[in-house]
Amino acid sequence: MSLIVKTVSRMLTPVMLLVAAYIILHGHITHGGGFQGGVLVACAFILLIIAFGIDYVEAKVSFSFGQAFRSLGATIIIIAALVGMVFGFWFFKNVGVYPYGFPGEVFSAGSLIIYNLGEMANVSASFLVAFYFLIRFRRRRK
C-alpha cells in the first residue's frame, strides 16, 4: 500500500484501540460492551493487515496465539460464571458474590467487567483468526 495509507493507519490504529478499550472497560457504565469493543479491536488489526500486509501482522499476532486467546476468552466467561455458582449457588450470580461497588466507577457492577473482557478476547481473536484464514485461503487447483 502507498505511504499515505501506511501513515494514516499507523496513526489510526492506536486511536481505534483506545476507543475499543474505553468501550470495553466502560461497558457497564456507558454504551457498548465486550462485543462492540472486541470487533473494534479486530477492525484495528484488519486495518493494519490492509496497510502493511498479512505477514507483518501475523509476525506480531500469530494464528495460534489468536486461537489460544479466543479460547481463553470463552474460558474466562465460563469460569467467572462458575465462580458465581460455587459461591452464590446460581450460575452467573453477580452481586452478592462479586462486589457491588459504587455505580459509575470503573470497578463497579460486580462481574460485568470480567465478562466484557472475556467477550472482547473471544470476539476480537475469533474475527481475526477467521480473517487470517480467509486471506490465506486459496482456491483448490484441480
Partner: peptide, 15 residues
C-alpha cells in the same frame, strides 16, 4: 445446580 452442571461440563470440555 445439577441442571447447570450438565451444561457446564460440556462447556468446559470444548474450550
Amino acid at each position: 445446580p445439577l441442571a447447570a452442571g450438565v451444561v457446564l461440563i460440556l462447556l468446559g470440555a470444548y474450550t
